[in-house]
Amino acid sequence: MSWMKSLFVREYQLANRVGGGALIGVLFFLAVVTIFPFGVGPDMILLSRIGAAILWIGALLSTLLGLDRLFQADREDGSLELLVMSGRSLELVVLIKCAAHWAATGLPLVLATPVLSLFVGLDFQSIVLVTLTLLVGAPALTLVGAVGAGVTVSMRRGGVLLSILVIPLAIPILIFGVSAATAGAIDSNNFLVPFLFLCALTLFGLVVGPLAAAAALRVSGD
């Protein structure tokens, strides 16, 4: 088990040390949320109505931003070859890398959400709901994104293609995430139904993401 811990620690450290780490993702999140009022106008009533959606889209874009390097850096320096041939379960390696990546870049987005919620005029109830849905749903974005990262690992400029491939996969997550976040009350069925679907999608991503990404990485070893 110690290799899993070592891998997690290394990936977490690298994600934090490379390219500004968590800060850069949060900064991008802030930038995305900031441009919305400039686009739709400083109407607080309108903003509070679409605020949950703005935050979710901001989190989605921020997640996509860092994903292209998830496996690419390892491929370029030869680490990927060793990860593949070591005899360790590649699916597990992918899962741990995703977990570390999410802890380093996804979790700060969730933590920043309550603060950014104030900019779009959400009330306390909505802030709780948006943060909760992102906490549960954002890992699914990373897991689905890992598939795109695995598929585009051999491309020099795979970032844009990664986003094109991943966004359709992220649509159901967005639908249920925003639906639950805008339900209004935590004890209502309006919240519970989409929220449970969101949980299901994350669990589903935990299975499909590592399987598909590991398969893609094995192909890239050729």
């Binding site: 051999s154 491309m155 893609a216 050729d222």
Partner: peptide, 27 residues
Amino acid sequence: LGIIALWKAIEDPIKAAKVNAIITLVG
């Protein structure tokens, strides 16, 4: 369109086929 772009982005047709098969089945 994403799948077509992925086909075009990988030169080696055998590798492209496998990668596309994975993304198609996830799709």
